[in-house]
Amino acid sequence: MVKTVVIKPKVDINKVNTHILPVDFEYYEPRTLRELVELLDKLGPSAKILAGGTDLLVQIKQRAVEPKYVVNIKKVRELDFIEDRGDYLAIGAVTRLRAIEKNSLIAEKFTALHEAVRAMAGVQIRNMATIGGNLCNASPAADTAPPLMVFDAELKIVGPGYEKVIPITQFFKGPKKTVLKYNEVLAEIRIPYPKPPTGSAFIKIARTAMDLAKVNVAVALRVDEDDYIRWIRVTLGSVAPTPVRARSVEEELIDKRFSEEIVRKASRLVVNDISPITDIRSTAEYRREVSKVIVRDALLIAYKRVRGV
């Protein structure tokens, strides 16, 4: 009659409980960056940093992670700031998305980042979620990653007794993987001001107005008086294991004279830079198709912004 089989469920439904935190852990609230790093060093790899918790708590309730120690970094006040430092803008890792969204300097100089944050979740989540959390969670769909990548952002990483600054392009290692070691934290994000006149844009394709991206794209470009593209960045999310630069598109367009026709052609090259998969949100084929479309759309919008129209 019935055939017996071996099935390995992908989720243990009896362990999931979203009413509570169904895992026992020790909880810490360090007050300074130094304390924080020392603590992480002491606790070892089974500790988890908690920022806004909008990714981490979900993962704990789903039993995707079961930390032995949870270290809240939101009490580390020195990591919560948005600061103009002349050449670059610095954003502390625990800065809330809502603060970034409301910052007029960011809206003006880093429009793509502003648009990305506005397209994330709902107000309640943006009041909790931090920009550092979005990057360190390292989802291929993280919305702040593409705009930060187009602005050549750098990340300040602090470990026990040292700190270093790396380009954001070196930060992601794969889905849910970054270069951070267990005793290192992301402390701040530095975004150099682009030379004017620069325009940028962010576009996200998703199932509804509140969703993770099927594909997202950020672009930034600078054109000279004769409409020659002198600097350009194109980055996409959710179409590869990490957010990716579309170098084929960039190379095709650099030093070319801007026109809709040439942008249209160059945008098609994006398929060389991405390796999308089929999952529950969308199909590989669809992601490839719309990547071309939104790269082009974003470039046209960014150009208009350069020209102030």
């Binding site: 099935i7 390995k8 469920p9 992908k10 989720v11 439904i13 999931v16 979900v58 789903q62 199932r207 509804t208 107005a209 509140m210 969703d211 993770l212 529950i280 949100r281």
Partner: peptide, 26 residues
């Protein structure tokens, strides 16, 4: 609500992250 043919689970694993309903802006 597609099902996983291998395991007989919901493809969204029961999480509404992957069961979207329309919101007011839609």
């Amino acid at each position: 609500l597609p099902y996983d043919p291998e395991t007989g689970e919901l493809m969204n694993r029961g999480f509404i992250t992957d069961y979207k309903v329309v919101t007011a802006p839609d």
